[in-house]
Each structure stands twice: as structure tokens, then as C-alpha cells.
Amino acid sequence: MSVRAEFDAWAADGRDRGMEERHWHTAKHALARMPVEPGDTVLDLGCGSGYAGRALRDTKDAGRVYGLDGAPAMVRNAQAYTEDPNVGYVVGDFDALPFADDSVDHVWSMEAFYYARDPVHTLEEVERILRPGGTFYCAVNYYEENVHSHEWQERIDVEMTRWSKSEYREAFREASLAVAEQDSIPDREIDIPPAESFPTDDWDSREEMFERYRTHGTLLTVGVSR
């Protein structure tokens, strides 16, 4: 199955809003750090329901916010969730971004980057479209150190890239993005039941669930275009 078919199915049965709710726990902390100034143009790669771009309009007065996603049904949903004329959505692929060189101030991506077919090339594309000094905020829950995420590959019919923290830093630099920060943002909001509730459907032990959310959480890598 293609990424598009997979995520069109997610959009159709409302999983776009489910992801938004869960991802917001950590995404909001990363979004708050972005040096977006009033009037800036921001692009959300793999925007899903599109919540991140809308939040940057609301909180930082971003000028124009675009969401790109490969799944047409995702984009249609995202468009339906807003009437803001300065927010727009585009169907497109990470490996062939339809944006001009130096045309965007900042790029955001949450839980989407590792679906790129050729992730280093996607980084090169991001570097190309960012104006010098613009940032790429790349947030993922699926990465090497987050061992409890490894099994996700079994549940999805699309190949995913599982880099370690240092592999992210290296790849960014390979694509001429200076690495400005890397951080694990804990999810402090997910409810972790008391020890006697384990095993649950998803978790064998409380320790594992704690490690997944509070210790590893979301890996944020911030790159700056040169």
C-alpha cells in the first residue's frame, strides 16, 4: 500500500484528529520554541489535520501558513477545519517539494519525516526552499533510542526510516543544515495508570510505558539553513 492510500484511510475514519490530540502533548512545546516572527511564511510537512500551522498563526501571528501532505483526504480534512484565508494546503510529496528556492522562513514537521522515501534528499529539499537563516523543526516519536516505537513498523505497510539521534544530526549536516539543537521532549500529559493496571492492551509494564513517554517522548532536531 502507498503512503497516500494508508493515510487517506486514516483521514477517512478520523484518525487525523486522534493523532492531533496525542501529538499536541509534545508538539506544542516544540512549536513554542520556533523563532517565527509576525508575517513569516511557514510550511508544515506531512501536516495531517493541519493543527500545527494553525497554532503558529494563532500564537505567533505567522503571515502565511501552508500544509503539505501526500494524502489527499488528509489535506481535504485539514482545509475543512479552518476558514483562515492565510492558511492553505497542498497535496505533494516530501521528495519533490513544489516550492521555490528560499521561499519559506521556517519548516515544521511532526511524526511524518521518517516516511520520506529518500530522507536525505528530503532534507536537501528543505534546505533548498528555506531562506538562509530559516529553521527546520523536525519532530519524531519513531527513532532508534525510543525502543518501544520499533514495533510500529510491523503495524504499518509503509517503510519507515529509523535513525538514531546522532544519525539525525549527521544527515542534517550532510544536507547543509546546521544543527542548532536536539532534544527529547517528554509527554507529561499522557495518563500512565498505576502499576497494578499493567499489563494493559498496549503495555507489558508501567516502566516501559513511562520510558516511552516520559523519558524518550518526542525527538526534536532543529536545523538552520546556511
Binding site: S2, R4, A5, G70, P72, V75, R76, Q79, Y89, V90, V91, G92, D93, A96, P98
Partner: peptide, 20 residues
């Protein structure tokens, strides 16, 4: 040719647009 439908432009490379 990249279609605009229901206000949304589809800028997938043509070979990806048709793949399922």
C-alpha cells in the same frame, strides 16, 4: 498538468499521483 480540485492543488509528481 497539476489539477486544482475543491480549492486544493495536487502537486504530486505525476507518477505518484496515479499510484495506489
Amino acid at each position: 498538468v497539476y489539477p486544482i480540485e475543491d480549492g486544493i492543488p495536487n502537486l504530486l509528481p505525476p507518477d505518484m499521483r496515479d499510484e495506489e
